[in-house]
Amino acid sequence: MKKLFLLLTVAMLSACTSSIHMSQVDVGSNDANNVDIGKVIEIEKSQKNILGFVYDTDYVDLAYKNLLLECPNGTSMINVEYLTNHGFFSWTDKIRIKAVCL
């Protein structure tokens, strides 16, 4: 009974840990750094990873392509976040991009 309680507690506590590896904010120079807060877009792409067996990082390129499509006139501010959601013998890597379109 004690062990069952212990296992249940562990199972509950072990849920959904994450790790943010980096969060970068960048602003344009000269004319572009006059931030006119227009459209802020948000893009999130992820890749499921089982025990490290993945062979490309194309999800990041896909997120960047989406950014180019959503901001045809370019960006004035950008925030890139790279994080991992941990799981049972597997994890999910995520890229989140937030940008202020010009």
Binding site: S14, A15, C16, T84, H86, F89
Partner: peptide, 25 residues
């Protein structure tokens, strides 16, 4: 159990909220 339930690359210690940096922009 905790180690196998929380597999994956870690930068620092794990956190229980992956959106804590969502508001920086």
């Amino acid at each position: 159990i905790l180690a196998i339930s929380n597999f994956g690359p870690k930068t620092g210690n794990p956190v229980y909220n992956d959106a804590y940096a969502a508001k920086v922009l």
